[in-house]
Simulated scan of single mutants.
Amino acid sequence: MQEGLAVVTLVLVGLMVGVEVCVAAFVNPTFDRLPNGGGLAARSDGARVLGRVMPVWYVGSVLCSVGWAVQTWGRPEALTVVVAAALLVVSVVLSVMLLVPINSQVAQWSSTGAPANWREQVGRWDRLHVLRVAILVIAFTLLVLSGVSHSA
């Protein structure tokens, strides 16, 4: 059962990290280059769509990693799984406290219009998102190392 949970956790977290890296490195920079407010509309739509999906994905990743940590307790790989789970929790707290409030505003801009400082707000979101991505990459790396050390 431990191997199954490890695989599910690695796939779940790995795909989430891939999506978040893609948003940071490719999607939002591309949106920012669109003419005539297209980027703002695209960000607003993305905020609505991902705003519904990502909370489930993040919580699922935390729950799977915590389950994996419980299963490995007392084994050498337990510490790396616990640290990874803690980092995933940090990413959720960071998201809820700092990113979600901005994202919620961005999601409404297509219907209400954007404020004068919208570029500043999405720039702040982008910087915080890069921090979150770094945390997620470290957590995923630790999970991979845990899986590799367990199978060795």
Rank of each mutant, 00 (worst) to 15 (best):
E3P: 05
E3K: 10
V7S: 14
T9G: 13
T9Q: 13
T9N: 12
T9F: 11
L10Q: 12
L10Y: 15
L10M: 15
V13I: 12
G14T: 15
L15E: 14
M16P: 08
G18R: 09
G18S: 11
E20F: 15
E20M: 15
E20T: 07
V23M: 15
V23T: 07
V23I: 15
A24V: 11
A24Y: 10
F26K: 09
V27L: 10
P29V: 02
T30Q: 11
L34D: 08
P35G: 12
N36Q: 13
G37I: 04
G37V: 05
G39T: 04
A41K: 15
A41W: 08
A41I: 11
A41F: 04
R43F: 04
S44I: 04
S44T: 06
D45L: 15
A47V: 03
R48C: 01
R48Y: 05
V49M: 03
L50Q: 06
L50N: 00
L50W: 08
L50V: 08
V53L: 13
V53W: 02
M54L: 13
W57R: 00
V59H: 07
G60H: 00
L63N: 02
L63E: 04
S65E: 02
G67D: 05
G67A: 01
W68P: 03
W73R: 09
G74R: 05
R75H: 12
E77P: 03
A78W: 08
V82C: 08
A84I: 07
A84R: 03
L88T: 01
V92R: 05
V93M: 03
L94N: 04
L94F: 08
V96R: 14
M97T: 14
M97A: 14
L98C: 05
L98M: 09
L99W: 12
P101K: 06
P101W: 08
N103D: 12
N103F: 00
Q105L: 09
Q108H: 07
Q108G: 10
W109H: 08
S111E: 07
T112Q: 07
G113M: 09
A114G: 08
A116Y: 11
N117I: 06
N117Q: 14
W118Y: 14
R119M: 10
V122M: 07
V122Q: 06
G123F: 09
G123E: 12
G123Y: 05
G123T: 11
R124H: 09
W125S: 02
W125Q: 06
D126S: 13
R127H: 14
R127G: 07
L128R: 15
V130A: 15
V133M: 07
A134W: 04
L136E: 10
V137P: 01
L142A: 01
L143P: 08
V144T: 11
V144F: 10
L145H: 03
L145Q: 01
L145C: 12
G147L: 06
S149I: 01
S149Y: 04
H150W: 11
S151K: 06
A152V: 08
A152P: 00
